[in-house]
Write a protein that binds this DNA or RNA. Structure first.
Length: 864
RNA sequence: GGGCGCGUAGCUCAGCGGAACGAGCACUCGGCUUACACCCGAGCGGUCGCAGGUUCGAUCCCUGCCGCGCCCACCA
């Protein structure tokens, strides 16, 4: 017999840690490539080593955990693979910052020592989030934990690099790239955030021409002025030179299609080393490029005194003043709102800068990545996000992958003194071209996202042909935020399709952001960031998980607040106590479920409802409608099971006998199923209860409920709905008449005989009535769904209140009837609407009229 | 400059061509009913942003406004 000795309150802290460790110890989350169960795979979006659990993680982890737990229960070999990302710039910045407080820079240490320091740092502080994941209950396979800088994953990085290199899809070139003068590295386009900034558009006289710019200092690097070839105003000037102010350099006037003659003066200054368009113009016209910046964005020796060595912003001012002094500023101060690029990691204004970097030639890869979604090999949920994905994949520029950092995967290319370069997976002994042994490896490391792009297969052992890879690739779902579609999703698609025979994942489930209770984005500056650990501390992990799941609508943002988590906590407690009641009542989950013919209406009703919920939940899981499935379960558990069935079940159980046993079996069955259905969302409470209820080891490995069609019972559902309607009606009447809730009123229930026989007692019990043989003189009557209940208020009725109640009800029904008859009087409606809709409308009108007649009679019968 | 999304009860959000079934929270009233006061019962609360159009019928489709939010962007 189950042990029913449970505390009155669910105490999360007493069970969570213990349960989690037991799950891991029993190996529930550890998968095997052997066996013939179907595989289900999700790889975790690897959090940064520097990171700690925030609400977004808690949110996504809850959903991924629910998905994998459900599949596990369904009999899949369900793998949720955990791991972390080395997060190049982010981590290097963090470690450098800690060193700065000791007054040490990375250059003081040298490359090798610095990298060692980062590893040490990682060992000590990194991966805090992994411990927090245990707290949340994440059912990940810890035996398969990965890190992007692991030996295996690093080899995967070098391997794909080499393949791309050999295929001509990776190249090294001088291009305009985004340079962060603080991080002192190149950045890819998407690592640059554009922000609207108030600048000044300065117009400068260049001899006979006027040009404009917001970055005045760049004029020091100008090597031409461009005009449109068809522009008659300047036709004569093309091919001539003008003298660059302040610098004295003679610069050419060129004609180029890129120039819009309608815009501004129609003349553009050309700074090939600091503007991508200008660089393109320079290439077309074979113009020189003059780089005017040092790596820290001070001006270099290519510029004349006094600007040499100045910071770019100081120079901006100084150059403007110098030009003004020569009377070359054409316009008055003109404020100009424009988008300026900032470093995603440190918010420093980035500079476009000509630089020798490594690039991925993106076009063929992006094409394949787009096609895989276009032809449905991978689908997005919700579909809407595919547009965003296409927009990017179809308009992508080559990807700058080299970073002037020390923390990361070093570019697997070596150079010899003869100018040869060799790309290899393992460090080469000598130059294959000249045999020289003194090779130098490229100094740069790869963009962090380069290794992340391999994650779905590098974590499974690629480039080796491992059993895991065979079994678990392609992964089933990638669940991630929309903020990361470009950085990660698209690139995994590109590399996955390049390196593997199939897409990296079949479904991309896009989640929204987690916002605060007012729907505001959480941010440190607003001070509204809520720590998930704080919620877990106060309400338990399940409460947080359930609250998050309940707010999760595909692709849209979710709000979280104390109220939500508190509500979810209450739900967990409700579950606890309801199960406790079931146990106290002797619910028997192992007893065979009696055939429907032996069961009472309420028993058949709850079993029928259960089938519907199972179906609803399954459907919602397929659509990633977590909010809907959480809601369905909440409603079933609380509003149907607890508020009605449990109350109804008390009657036969109190009576005892064979019927009591049958009800106990139903009670056991329903709670067993409910706990299993809820387990993926709230793993702790359910596993704290389920073994006690069923005598089995753990709900983690319990089978997922399946719909039993034979338990659908429309008749029982209709009957119980009638019961609910009439009970509610009586309760409402009692409340309006201010009858004491504890008072048991003598009453008579009238309906068709089978219904009264089956439900009379139950109605009386739930509505607190005392059934008597016959109604007395002057008793009040309420009706709902064709069930009449008359009861004796012994003169306690407030006639005025009753009159008001009836008048109100009559008015409501009159309005309803009028509306419906108007609709039915409309030939167009009757003629064109589907017959079922018309019939339904007729029926509603008939009902309303019947009820109206009854109410009027009651009103007339009232004493004056 | 392009693209996307949102505006439904006091709040956060469901619903998206046939009665606004709306949900949670909040609020009001009444209750220690032997699982639970982290509870039970009853109730209040919405011209579904505005204006047109399509339709027998629109919160739901179309158009245009207004107000928010997000993403992308090499027009000086």
């Amino acid at each position: 017999m189950p042990n029913a000795d449970l505390p009155k309150e669910y105490l999360p802290h007493d069970v969570e840690g213990r349960l989690y460790e037991s799950w891991v110890a029993r190996g529930y989350f550890t998968v095997s490539p052997e066996g013939d169960r179907p595989a289900y795979t999700i790889v975790i979006p690897p959090p940064n080593v520097t990171g700690s659990l925030h609400m977004g993680h808690a949110f996504q982890h809850t959903l991924m955990d629910a998905l994998t737990r459900r599949r596990r229960m369904q009999g899949y070999e369900s793998l949720w693979l955990p791991g972390m990302d080395h997060a190049g710039i982010a981590t290097q910045n963090v470690v450098e910052a800690t060193m700065r407080s000791e007054g040490v820079t990375r250059h003081d240490l040298g490359r090798e020592t610095f990298v060692e320091r980062v590893w040490e740092w990682k060992a000590e502080y990194g991966g805090k989030i992994l411990g927090q994941m245990r707290r949340l209950g994440d059912g990940v396979d810890w035996t398969r934990e990965r890190f992007t800088m692991d030996d295996g994953l690093s080899r995967a990085v070098r391997t794909i690099f080499q393949r791309l290199y050999d295929d001509g899809l990776i190249y090294r070139a001088e291009r305009i790239i985004n340079w962060c003068p603080r991080c002192m590295t190149a950045l890819s386009d998407i690592e640059v955030e554009h922000k609207e900034v108030e600048g000044e558009l300065v117009s400068i006289a260049y001899g006979p021409l006027t040009v404009a710019t917001t970055r005045v200092e760049t004029m020091l690097g100008d090597t031409a002025v461009a005009v449109h070839p068809e522009d008659d105003r300047y036709r004569d000037l093309v091919g001539t030179t003008i003298t660059l102010p302040l610098v004295g350099r003679e610069i050419l006037v060129v004609a180029d299609e890129h120039v819009d003659p309608e815009f501004g003066t129609g003349a553009v200054k050309v700074t090939p080393a600091h503007d991508p368009n200008d660089f393109a113009i320079a290439q077309r016209h074979d113009l020189p490029a003059v780089d005017i910046l040092n790596t820290d964005a001070t001006l270099n020796d290519a510029v004349p005194e006094p600007f040499r060595g100045m910071d770019r912003f100081a120079a901006r001012k100084a150059v403007r003043e110098a030009l003004a002094a020569e009377g070359l500023i054409v316009n008055e101060r003109r404020p100009y709102l424009h988008a300026v690029g900032h470093c995603q990691r440190c918010s420093t204004v980035v500079e476009p800068r000509l630089s020798l970097q490594w690039f991925v030639k993106v076009e063929p890869l992006a094409k394949a990545a787009g096609d895989a979604v276009r032809d449905g090999r991978t689908t997005f949920v919700p579909k809407m996000w595919e547009k965003t994905y296409f927009e990017w994949v179809d308009n992508m520029h080559d990807w700058c992958i080299s970073r002037q950092l020390w923390w990361g995967h070093r570019i697997p290319v070596w150079y010899c003194d003869h100018g040869h370069q060799v790309c290899a997976v393992e460090t080469p002994e000598s130059c294959p071209e000249c045999g020289m042994t003194d090779l130098r490896q490229d100094e740069d490391v790869l963009d962090t996202w380069f290794s992340s792009a391999l994650w779905p297969f590098s974590t499974l052992g690629w480039p080796d042909e491992t059993a895991d890879l065979e079994r678990f690739y392609p992964t089933d779902v990638l669940l991630t935020g929309y903020d990361i579609i470009f950085f990660w999703v698209a690139r995994m698609m590109m590399f996955g399709l390049y390196a593997m025979p199939d897409v990296p994942f079949r479904t991309v489930a896009i989640t929204g952001l987690v916002r605060d209770g007012q729907g505001r984005k959480m941010s440190k500056s607003k001070g509204n960031v809520i720590d998930p650990l704080d919620f877990m501390e106060r309400y338990g992990a399940d409460a947080l998980r359930f609250a998050l799941a309940r707010g999760a609508n595909p692709g849209s943002d979710a709000a979280i607040s104390d109220e939500w988590v508190e509500g979810a906590r209450n739900f967990c407690n409700k579950l606890w106590n309801a199960t406790r009641f079931a146990l106290l009542s002797g619910a028997d989950a192992s007893a065979p479920l009696p055939p429907a013919s032996e069961l009472t209406g309420p028993d058949r009703w709850i079993l029928s409802r259960l089938q519907r919920v199972v179906a609803q939940v399954d459907e919602a899981y397929e659509q990633y409608e977590f909010g809907a499935l959480a809601q369905a379960l909440y409603h079933f558990a609380w509003d149907e099971l607890c508020d009605w069935y449990v109350e109804l079940a008390k009657i036969p159980i109190a009576a005892g006998g064979a019927e009591a046993d049958r009800t106990r079996a139903v009670l056991g069955h329903v709670f067993d199923a409910l706990l299993r259905l809820l387990h993926p969302l709230v793993p702790f409470v359910t596993d704290a209860l389920w073994p006690t209820l069923t005598g089995n080891e753990s709900v983690v490995v319990a089978p997922w409920p399946v719909v039993d069609e034979s338990r659908h019972d429309a008749a029982a559902e209709t009957e119980v709905e009638r019961l609910q309607a009439v009970v509610t009606e009586v309760r409402r009447f009692r409340a309006e008449q201010q009858v004491k809730p504890s008072a048991k009123l003598p009453a008579v229930v009238r309906a068709d005989e089978t219904f009264t026989a089956a439900y009379g007692t139950a109605i009386a019990s739930l509505a607190r009535l005392d059934l008597v043989a016959e109604a007395g003189e002057g008793w009040s009557t309420v009706t709902a769904s064709g069930v009449e209940v008359s009861f004796d208020l012994s003169g306690a009725v407030d006639i005025a209140a009753e009159r008001a109640r009836l008048a109100k009800a009559i008015a409501a029904h009159e309005a309803e009837a009028k509306k419906l008859s108007g609709k039915l009087g409309n030939d167009a409606f009757v003629g064109k609407a589907p017959p079922a809709v018309v019939d339904e409308t007729r029926q509603r009108l008939a009902d309303a009229e019947g009820e109206l007649a009854r109410l009027r009679a009651l009103l007339d019968a009232l004493p004056a």
